[in-house]
Design a protein around this nucleic acid. Structure first.
Lengths: 128, 128
DNA sequence: TAAGTGTATTAAGATATATAATACACTATA
DNA sequence: TATAGTGTATTATATATCTTAATACACTTA
């Protein structure tokens, strides 16, 4: 699957997780990295559905999740836009980072690895 | 749900993931931490099913996954035992650790966080 | 022989995910 | 005012995954 770029967001869907979760994650990522700015117009539900080759309901679900998180706002009849407030973006950013760290620590503890051993493993990873 | 201890393994099942995956993960963890030794007898399929209040088929699936990973061996009519070789345990240990690190790095990169920022977050976590 | 092992099979149900087809309300604009 | 484009809601269907249930069979030990 080749990535699909639209409105500053790069989408790449696979079969490993639900589509709507992947859409949410990738919009979050674009916002967190600043590739998608505040108060920007999102692709319409139908347009994005067509681009990603998924059902409009699936995009709807993702947009509604993102709206509940405060990242998107919708104006009936007008469209869906990114929030104009930086706070929700920062909050989600922190939440995602914290959750990922907690997941890692959970696994490492279950394996009996120390913080130092974990740090060493992270040092060995190609970052980008 | 209070944890259930049997044969050096502590089980705690919740509804967040499939039971069989949780059983696999917790047996892996017990082996990786050495709480469950090599060549030890596992609870029988029916016994563990009864203890965990799940279907025997669910335990079977977990045991078969663990056997495919080389962590368990079964002798028809006799029972299921942990492997007598340390290699598979070490291999799984490395695989799990590596996978967890990769997951973390994936999230952090998507959020646009650097390795140093990630390290700082890990430093702030209570480890044990 | 009996009890306890693992194993296989078939059926059923619950849930999550996704699609499909429609319909409706609202907004902007030609 | 019409039309096209927005979001939204509903209902039905399909599929896959997970889990339970009920049996049955093969093997081993005592």
């Amino acid at each position: 699957m080749e990535p699909i770029k639209v409105a500053g967001i790069t989408f790449r869907l696979d079969a490993t997780k639900p589509f709507y979760e992947q859409i949410v994650a990738q919009v979050c990522g674009a916002l967190a990295r600043g590739e998608l700015g505040l108060e920007e117009r999102m692709p319409s539900v139908r347009e994005l559905a067509q681009l990603l080759k998924v059902n409009p309901n699936t995009v709807m679900r993702a947009y509604q999740d993102l709206e509940r998180s405060g990242l998107l706002v919708t104006y009936r009849g007008q469209g869906t836009f990114t929030t104009n407030k930086p706070e929700p973006v920062e909050r989600i950013r922190r939440e995602l980072a914290h959750g990922a760290v907690q997941d890692l620590v959970g696994v490492m503890r279950q394996l009996g690895l120390s913080r130092e051993q974990t740090m060493t493993l992270i040092q060995e990873v190609d970052w980008e």
